[in-house]
């Protein structure tokens, strides 16, 4: 048995119901149709700075393969999502590369930790660059953060890049943040993809 073993009876995490998907689909539409950030949604300079710090920290954990710590950045009702389309499709109707709830995200990290995940033997090395960070307020406790990413990768002698945009929903946690949604939208998600079994 692996160290990851916790319980044979999983906690009920039933938040992925049809309404939840509807909320996600609406969120994506909002991001896709966003113009200049409306004045009433501009964050304070302090919030903007702390969101940037947090995103850079998140990227740093990924590049250092500190996945248990990375996982701890996510809320209990989180979503980690890689769509297969570039049109903002509804996840009730279109398959995703990944549509993880908290439990599945834990399982993903556990799989990579088994030492038998051959798709990551050797592991993909990455450098995540986040740029064009935009932050919008979303109620009292949450903000949205949009950014572009470029991930330089090296896997077994082959160097290649991944690129696209991230959409985050972040929830206030003391002086920092937790991730409620991370949507990784590869700019070529609908086209042939090489080994993406590392964590984007």
């Amino acid at each position: 048995m692996s160290d990851a073993r916790r319980t044979l009876v999983p906690p009920t995490r039933g938040y992925f119901d049809l309404d939840h998907y509807g909320t996600l689909a609406a969120l994506v539409q909002e991001w896709r149709s966003l113009g200049e950030i409306p004045p009433e949604r501009l964050p304070t300079a302090e919030d903007h700075a702390s969101v940037c710090r947090f995103l850079h920290y998140e990227a740093r954990l990924l590049d250092a393969a500190r996945l248990p710590e990375w996982l701890a950045l996510f809320t209990d009702d989180c979503v980690y999502w890689l769509p297969t389309d570039v049109d903002g499709a509804d996840p009730r109707k279109v398959v995703s590369w990944e549509m993880n709830d908290r439990r599945r995200l834990e399982e993903r990290v556990e799989r990579l930790g088994t030492g038998r995940a051959y798709s990551q033997a050797p592991p993909t090395r990455t450098t995540h660059l986040y740029a064009n960070i935009e932050v919008l307020t979303a109620g009292v406790t949450e903000v949205h953060a949009l950014c572009t990413f470029l991930i330089q990768t090296h896997l077994a002698g082959r160097v290649s890049q991944r690129s696209g945009s991230n959409g985050f929903v972040l929830r206030r946690a003391g002086r920092s943040w937790q991730i409620v949604v991370k949507r990784v939208s590869l700019f070529d998600a609908d086209l042939p993809q090489d080994n993406n079994s590392f964590t984007l």
């Binding site: 999983p10 995490r13 992925f16 939840h20 549509m99 709830d101 439990r103 599945r104």
Partner: peptide
């Protein structure tokens, strides 16, 4: 278990 199993 898959995402959303219990709710759906």
């Amino acid at each position: 278990v898959s995402p959303g199993r219990e709710a759906l």
